[in-house]
Simulated scan of single mutants.
Amino acid sequence: MRAGVFRGKGRIEVEDVPDPVAGPDDVVLDLYGCGVCGSDIGQFRSGTARAGQVMGHEFAGTVVEVGSRVQGIVEGDRLTGLPIQPCGDCRRCRAGLAHLCERWTTRSIAFGLPGGFAERLHIPAARLGHNVHRLPDLPGGAGAALEAGTLVEPLSVAVHAVRLADAGPGRSAVVTGLGTIGLQAAQTLRAKGCTPVIGVDPSPLRRSVAEGLGIVTVDPTVGEEALAGTLSALTGEAEADIVVEASGVGALVAGAIEIVRPRGTVVLVALYHSPATIEPMRAVQREVVLRGSANVTPEDFRDSLELVGSGAVATAPLISHRMPLERVQEAFEAQLDARASVKVLVTTS
């Protein structure tokens, strides 16, 4: 089969690799596609991925092979799944924090195991409702369901972050950074009853997508007071109950602490590649809750599929580019341009 193989800093080549084979506990998917994630971009740009790694962990596909001991899954099922394959034995796994497994980065799909920029994908130890999940039927048929399935993994990242924010009716929220996860966090906050939900991003494209989803937006380039002014106009207060920081820009962490109300919650869900400077006393004096949010759980996946199936969260508007597997290098380069892209989807069928 054909797959996109990492071959060094800034370089992915489409090559012939062996077809995957399901063991007794495994399944193999005929992949519909795989999204390009910010973590993929970070490894692509820095060269930190392992040479020879098939990348890609935002996948969906149709089952073509089922191991003899797998239960509840049959050929033809449309699935997505968690890329993380926890070890089950480290201290975090034993404490019930498998999504924070100490060893997952060397034994998971696209992190040690072959990933989703390929025609087929092997999923080890497949357990329905745990590490693999059946896609809901959607208007538009199988193609629409599979395309939406490629957005479920990043949606589950957003769902996990919103869960940590304790979102609910009557609470105001700000999302800084309107990439895929930021847009999905904003939609999830709205689905939880938060109002208003305000998205902040310098990209006109990303703000336009957000506005089409019913999210109030702010262009941060117009001035430092723009966000506080918008909050005041909508709520009568210049502070928000919740801030989800999804940009990955270290300077915005300090800004998030400033804009959240006393005893409000700031959730950091982005990847940060440089240190951030904050004024700790600003958090201390106002008893701000500052939380990190990492990875996903099976519960996050289940909730995400419910949000997609009910129509509470839209996925199609987030896909700015669709490119075939043979153009995977171009897909990564397109995703690098944050102002001109939201989600770049690499299609394999």
Rank of each mutant, 00 (worst) to 15 (best):
C93Q: 02
R103N: 15
I278Y: 08
R291V: 08
R282M: 07
E239S: 15
S310M: 06
R127Q: 14
S247I: 11
G250R: 03
P280N: 10
V175E: 03
H273R: 12
A246P: 01
L183S: 04
S208T: 14
G52F: 09
A210G: 08
R45P: 00
R11A: 12
W104S: 06
A233V: 01
A210Q: 11
A312C: 01
P86A: 14
V269A: 15
H99I: 06
S247D: 05
P169W: 02
A126Q: 07
R120S: 07
R282G: 00
P324G: 02
A210Y: 11
I319F: 04
Q335T: 14
N131T: 03
K343R: 15
C194W: 06
I73D: 06
G141E: 13
S274Y: 01
P275C: 04
C194L: 10
D16L: 12
R322L: 05
G42R: 12
R120Y: 10
A228G: 11
R291P: 02
V284D: 05
V244P: 01
P280T: 09
Q335V: 06
G76R: 06
R103K: 14
V36D: 00
A161R: 05
D30W: 03
G4L: 11
S208C: 02
T230P: 02
G193F: 09
P20T: 13
A125W: 02
H160K: 12
E239V: 14
S68V: 14
K192C: 15
V159K: 01
V222A: 13
V54E: 00
V174I: 10
L97A: 13
A110G: 07
L234W: 06
A270C: 08
S68A: 15
A158V: 03
R339D: 14
V159T: 04
V253C: 09
Q85K: 12
T176A: 09
W104H: 11
L336N: 06
G112A: 12
A95E: 13
G96Q: 06
F332D: 05
L325M: 08
H99N: 15
R120I: 08
R94K: 11
P169S: 03
Q184R: 01
V249S: 05
A145G: 08
V253A: 10
R263D: 14
K192F: 14
E102W: 11
I198D: 07
Q53G: 02
P83C: 12
M281E: 04
R92V: 02
L189I: 09
M323P: 00
A110I: 09
L82D: 09
G250C: 06
I257M: 15
A22R: 07
P114Y: 03
E65C: 13
Q43I: 08
P262D: 13
P298T: 01
P220T: 03
R190Y: 01
H273G: 14
P124M: 12
L29F: 05
P204A: 08
V269T: 15
P298C: 01
P275M: 07
A338K: 13
V342N: 06
S203P: 00
P124C: 10
D25S: 15
G67W: 07
A276N: 05
G33P: 06
M1N: 04
A240G: 12
E224Y: 00
A173C: 07
G140F: 08
D303T: 05
L155R: 01
S172F: 06
E299Y: 00
